[in-house]
């Protein structure tokens, strides 16, 4: 940016109208299927069909009374956060190795790390279950689900971070080494900040993958279900559909609010720094 201060400030000023419209269109595409959830969650009909009948909040009341579902939600959040963080750390190390060093048998390792993606999930689920139960004899719990989710999220983290680290300027890292920083300092002060957008993207994607994963969680869950399992169980009963729509709407609502608030706080802080 410092190289081109003029054009940067000009570009910074305003998004052209046409681009704003395109962005709006994308938001519509991304959110299209989920904006219907709040609509039907306030409709007094257990079937999600048009025309709408009558406004009601009873599905939300039903939701607040359903502790089991909220527990399942919490379990999923915990697992998804843990596996996103672990997978991103492991994936980062792999990406660093693959992009910075001459890795022996690179393709072999690459294949191994992609393996969790290629194996059909039902096979993975059944084999991991027997691995945990018959070989290790660990009881099924959220830990077993989390361990499985780390294996399937590692490839996601690895691929994103390789794409980020690949072909970005190695000279910065070399320069820092020349300046006498050791490997850790270089990693902490140069590589990590440069990789940060990739790390954030990796955390977000791994979170989604784990949060929404059903088949592995089915095989590896004990008495504490994750949200997808709980929901799939209830799908058998049409009466519980609106309550699930209400839950989906709440997730939508609270996540948007949370993002807005954190971003506002962040902006305030950075303004204060200026």
């Amino acid at each position: 940016m410092s190289a081109t201060p003029m054009s940067a400030t000009v570009r910074r000023s305003r998004l052209p109208l046409i681009l704003s419209l395109i962005l709006a269109f994308y938001v519509l595409v991304l959110y299209g299927p989920v904006v219907l959830l709040p609509v039907f969650s306030f409709n007094d009909n257990i079937y999600a069909v048009f025309p709408l009948t009558q406004f009601t909040t009873k599905w939300y009341q039903e939701l607040t009374g359903n502790q089991a579902m909220l527990f399942a939600l919490w379990a999923s959040i915990k697992i998804a956060m843990a596996s996103a963080i672990i997978a991103t750390i492991l994936g980062f190390l792999v990406a660093k190795a693959m992009t910075r060093y001459r890795v022996p048998a690179k393709n072999f390792f690459y294949g191994i790390f992609m393996l969790p993606l290629i194996l059909p999930t039902i096979i993975k689920g059944a084999s991991l279950l027997s691995f945990f139960r018959q070989y290790l004899d660990v009881p099924l719990s959220l830990w077993t689900i989390g361990a499985a989710h780390v294996t399937v999220t590692i490839p996601f983290a690895m691929l994103i971070l390789i794409a980020r680290l690949e072909s970005f300027d190695r000279s910065l890292e070399e320069a820092s080494a020349d300046l006498g920083m050791n490997a850790w300092e270089t990693a902490w002060r140069i590589t990590l900040p440069l990789a940060m957008p990739g790390i954030i993207a990796s955390l977000l994607l791994c979170f989604i993958v784990s949060f929404d994963e059903f088949m592995l969680a089915f095989f590896l869950s004990g008495s504490q279900p994750t949200l997808p399992i709980y929901m799939f169980g209830l799908l058998r009963f049409p009466e519980s559909m609106p309550m699930m729509l209400a839950l989906g709407s709440c997730i939508l609502f609270f996540s948007i609010i949370a993002v807005t608030i954190t971003e506002m706080l962040r902006l305030k802080r950075s303004e204060a720094l200026l």
Partner: peptide
């Protein structure tokens, strides 16, 4: 304590695998 069953076939596979 309850664990959720979603399909007969899958339940059978799960018990067979050591649950």
């Amino acid at each position: 304590s309850f664990s959720i069953l979603t399909e007969n076939d899958q339940a059978r596979a799960k018990i067979r695998s050591g649950y």
